[in-house]
Nucleic acid binder design. Structure first.
Lengths: 210, 210
DNA sequence: ACTGCTATTGGTCGCGTGGCCAATGGGGTA
DNA sequence: TACCCCATTGGCCACGCGACCAATAGCAGT
């Protein structure tokens, strides 16, 4: 029998508390799914009472949307950094694709699958997904366009290539919940080889630079 | 005020009733999503009491899995018929891809997206999804292999081509819940042009035969 | 016509959810 | 030091869910 902790009441500035809530909720979304974001659950993890979460998010769905946006934004910044990284487009693309292929981004794929399905029922989340798709699409298209201007890539339709790559990524991501993933060489490097073909790069270039 | 209908109790042979339940549940899954399959909901549509559904499906999750299997099987039979259709492999492939691209198969894409996400939480559904994936994969690979043997297609890796096509289909399917679908020529015919390229078919062949 | 099996009913239970609201008290401000 | 705003609490409500069970009645076989 543990003694109940003293009901210390900690009062925080609203923006700080709000950010804290979103951060926790985003973690839950990534690890366990958007449907696990619950007033009570978030409150428990934060050591506050459920009512407080409701105070900051009178509509629980808004917390879900915002959490998704938060998680997706953070992960995108990590996977697909802008020019500030000081890397050439071809290297940024290589990093992006190899990390996505090899690295442990199963949680991220799961989150996108999750959000894309749940957005069927929640209009707010639907808008958030749409916004994140747009940002990712634009970032990738811009990266490719930049590479073309530098002479690293060759294509007449940077946006088309970006879309093609993203379809491959999302298609492979659809299988992340399989307990025994189907293995085949064609699947393993699909996004990388697709990118190399569409950008007129010698086979192996991207993996070598990743 | 409508008078309550006479409580006529209709007793049906178990297999018939069971089939009826699965059929209704599959329709709900296709139209509104797997999470809308509820003992009460199915009972309402069938004009029976919720307890009866529980009688046939002591674990509600089993009804969900079975409904998915039912819906997926039916749709596959329609989209990807076997040799009994009397069509050449190239024509069967053309029909499959054009129908999937143009036709109204949004419900089916949504169902797969739905099932792939929900299978994260339900082991029974996960197994069902896996089984259906395997059936579809094998059907498509067999179709391609047959086409290769007849000289209609050219590839050294029929299964790899099937996987590639399926990744494209599933990737595009991930966007079915977007309210304003992003439009771009690269997306429009992606599966068809991919198939033509991988099978060494002249551009336009498949669409012409669809 | 009777009987037995079981499909079907009707009701109850506990759980987790989001939403709502009056009371409380922390902490910056006058 | 006293005050007051509002972040925070505690408690409640209605809802929809799956599970469970004893009672009822359709219908096939005798």
């Amino acid at each position: 029998m543990t003694s109940s902790p003293p009901p210390t009441r900690i009062r925080k500035p609203p923006e700080e508390r709000r950010a804290e809530i979103v951060r926790i909720a985003a973690r839950i979304a990534l690890e366990e799914g958007l449907e696990r974001i619950t007033l009570r659950r978030v409150a428990d993890e934060l050591g506050v009472r459920p009512g407080l979460i409701g105070h900051y998010f009178p509509a629980a769905d808004d917390l879900v949307s915002e959490s998704f946006t938060h998680a997706a934004t953070k992960e995108r910044a990590s996977l697909l950094p802008g020019e500030e990284a000081g890397l050439a487009p071809i290297d940024r693309l290589a990093r992006f694709l190899t990390r996505l292929t090899d690295g442990d981004y199963a949680d991220l794929s799961r989150l996108w699958l999750n959000a894309r399905h749940v957005s069927r029922f929640k209009t707010g989340l639907r808008a958030a997904v749409r916004a994140q798709e747009e940002l990712t699409r634009d970032a990738l298209a811009t990266l490719i366009d930049e590479g073309v201007r530098r002479g690293e890539f060759t294509t007449e339709d940077p946006l088309g290539v970006a879309l093609h790559i993203l379809v491959n990524i999302d298609g492979l991501g659809a299988y992340t919940n399989d307990d025994v993933p189907f293995d085949h060489p064609a699947l393993r490097d699909m996004t990388i080889t697709t990118a190399e073909r569409l950008l007129d790069l010698p086979v192996g270039t991207l993996r070598a630079r990743g």
